[in-house]
Nucleic acid binder design. Sequence first.
DNA 1: TCATCCAGTTAACAACTGTTCTCTGGAATT
DNA 2: AATTCCAGAGAACAGTTGTTAACTGGATGA
Lengths: 208, 208
Amino acid sequence: MSHTLGIRQAQKQKTRQAFLDAALALLEEQSLSSLGLREVTRAVGVAPTAFYRHFRSTADLGVALVDEALGSLHPMVRTTVSTTGDSEERITRAVELIARHVEAYPAHVRFIARERHGGVQPVREAIRSQLVRFAEEVKAELAKDPEAAGWSDDDLLMLAHLYVDQMLITASLFLETLEAPREERERVTQLATRQLRLISIGRSHWRD
Amino acid sequence: MSHTLGIRQAQKQKTRQAFLDAALALLEEQSLSSLGLREVTRAVGVAPTAFYRHFRSTADLGVALVDEALGSLHPMVRTTVSTTGDSEERITRAVELIARHVEAYPAHVRFIARERHGGVQPVREAIRSQLVRFAEEVKAELAKDPEAAGWSDDDLLMLAHLYVDQMLITASLFLETLEAPREERERVTQLATRQLRLISIGRSHWRD
DNA sequence: TCATCCAGTTAACAACTGTTCTCTGGAATT
DNA sequence: AATTCCAGAGAACAGTTGTTAACTGGATGA
């Protein structure tokens, strides 16, 4: 059910996407709070005033970038944590999936890591609410596991947050090794795997 | 052995500290990469050119702030992780210490959390190297514990990094609840405590 | 006491910023 | 075919930015 957009709407979405792409590129070497409106329009090749047709401010643009970077990631997270295979299998699968994602969308990952605690409040809030959603989804998957028998809701959510934070830490570690020899990337893989393994062990002995 | 500084050097250090304080205050609502030199001098109440007598650039100032925020924290971390009391006792002690520190130096903590993945490379590097030092120190303390028998150096460092990252996550959580009712702060305390407990359980079953 | 030093000042520079108002030309609607 | 709509352009605004050069006056060391 794809409703064909008019020529006008299509062009508008195209320029809007150009804004997002240009901003993301510029944000590899600075923070959102120093990103200028004119800077972005210059990179897109458009008049400064055109910016206002799409965004109220650079903060607004930032919120849109959060949606682009995290919005489409929810199904992926769900299926990754889903209960197929044994613990060790799931861990290596998760770490590899993070590595692939960082390689495929480095700018998105960098943006999220940078602005999660960055200087623009609405963007921080947008990221925070997405991460809370992730944690809730992970919790829902964890609850399906037979190992979760006897776990309180609070404890499940606690573990889910631990996993989500660990995911972000691992992603930003991979980011740093993007231009490093694969020996370094292997080291990060091993580290993240063992950290997840330790958490997994703690999980299986929690009820004691 | 305190060598009395001349009037001149004393004044210089005083204004330098005024720069650091003013910058830290301004950085509560923005990132370092958007902090202007004139903005800082205006806040200090001094001519723009005076800035160059102390720092080459705002990035340089940022590195100095990293030292101020983390440099004096090493002994505290050492004694916190040190092996006195049982596991549960150490955990509650650590969480409370983090809470106190965030309350006492919120701006420092915010600065570190913000600029750890921020847009200024030299500052990121400075923070990274300090965190590596923390991890090494935590590792050294962990090694003293009888529970560390049979642990490889790599595994000890892996656990140490897990603790350091967890420390930062907890600190930034407390930061968000600074102006919230103490009910919220209590919730964060409980969450952080249980996460550390789970890690601790994983640690004690690691050798299996 | 006198010459040196140097933290902070003053003035000026070209370049840049966000935002407003007015205009245009092609798509969309009637 | 005639009218409305609206994404983007153009020009102008008052303020801001980092950096340079030449200066002042009080602390410093001979």
